[in-house]
Design a protein around this nucleic acid. Structure first.
Lengths: 195, 195
DNA sequence: GTCTATATCCGGATAGAC
DNA sequence: GTCTATCCGGATATAGAC
């Protein structure tokens, strides 16, 4: 396995993705140049095109990976049981996952407009699949009588907005521990779906 | 009051703001060019600079006007009374106002990153003042015993996120009337703050 | 695998004619 | 008040040397 001088594929590839994620989240996709990303990584702009066909695909791959990771993690974390336990599990998982990945979460919400039509469709389908997991729990709880939910779709979107939006602009400086935040959000959620 | 040939200040000024608002909301500030805005209005790019010193100020003015209108409208709409009535009034006002102005709402949430430091401070102060109106209601309800709120700040942000975020991605195609949406959100809110 | 150099185009903003 | 013309910088993406 000879390797050419100056090859750093194993380092540069991930470094590009990390830099792009951070910069896109901070300044917005359209406001970040390929030169800026390259500079952050320590290479020249042209070198980026060894790892991505273009800027649009770089954005798309970051968003798709985020959502695929989210869905995979959820499949690992989800539990069987009565709807209230399933819902608490979802809330804690969601809050935890999203607190851990602020940049990716931000990107996935803010940059939908900058996706090409085809890429947008893929991302939306992944997002919809995730939201459906929550909606299913609400419907199940309605069926068992554990929950009282007037409109499962609206409640799903309201919950996702609350659980996600809350800590996007939450300064996690340390006033509240992760567990405390989880607990507050679970408490709010529990009340929302029970009479 | 003689007027020069080709003058259309009364038309062009508002038209520029409307076009900029729509385009910024749709594609994002950084992705929209002054030429694009001008083209939408039916003038050349240079003419825009008769109405704004630069692109940044155009964005800032749109956001500031939105938030000042929001605060002024709230001061007109707010009622005295017991905390539960005050809260219901806030929720219905908020949902109604935000359903009416999707583009401006979207802009005010998405383009904070593209404001200069000074402009950002102004916008944040206006937003904080609005959020404080809600927080005050929650605190008042806690004092009277009408509400049970573990953390007024987190609950405020959770509520704002829920009430605003919900219909950003809500297709208002018509399945639910405005009043029905108000009612659902008030119902969710009421449960959240009472035991 | 990365660099330098460059093609090509588009951005914000201004000057001066009408 | 608007247009044409332009300055000047910076954007994405590619070609070819190393």
């Amino acid at each position: 396995m000879a390797r050419k001088t100056g090859s750093h594929a194993e380092i540069t590839g991930p470094a590009i993705r990390e830099a792009a994620l951070r910069l896109f989240a901070r300044s917005g996709y359209a406001a970040v140049s390929m030169r800026e990303i390259a500079s952050e990584v320590g290479v020249r702009a042209g070198a980026l095109y060894l790892y991505t066909p273009d800027k649009q695909t770089l954005l798309f791959d970051l968003m798709r990976e985020h959502l695929e990771t989210l869905l995979a993690a959820w499949r690992m974390a989800k539990v069987e049981g009565a709807p209230p336990e399933r819902l608490e599990n979802f809330v804690r998982f969601h809050v935890d996952f999203h607190l851990e990945r602020r940049d990716a979460v931000f990107l996935a919400y803010m940059e939908l407009r900058n996706l090409s039509e085809d890429n947008f469709a893929v991302i939306e389908e992944l997002r919809r699949a995730y939201e459906e997991e929550l909606e299913d729990i609400l419907e199940a709880g309605r069926a068992t009588g554990d929950f009282e939910v007037a409109d499962a779709r609206v409640t799903t979107m309201a919950l996702i907005a609350m659980l996600t939006g809350g800590h996007v602009w939450y300064r996690s400086g340390g006033r509240l521990s992760r567990d405390a935040i989880q607990k507050i959000y679970w408490d709010l959620t529990r009340r929302m779906v029970t009479k």
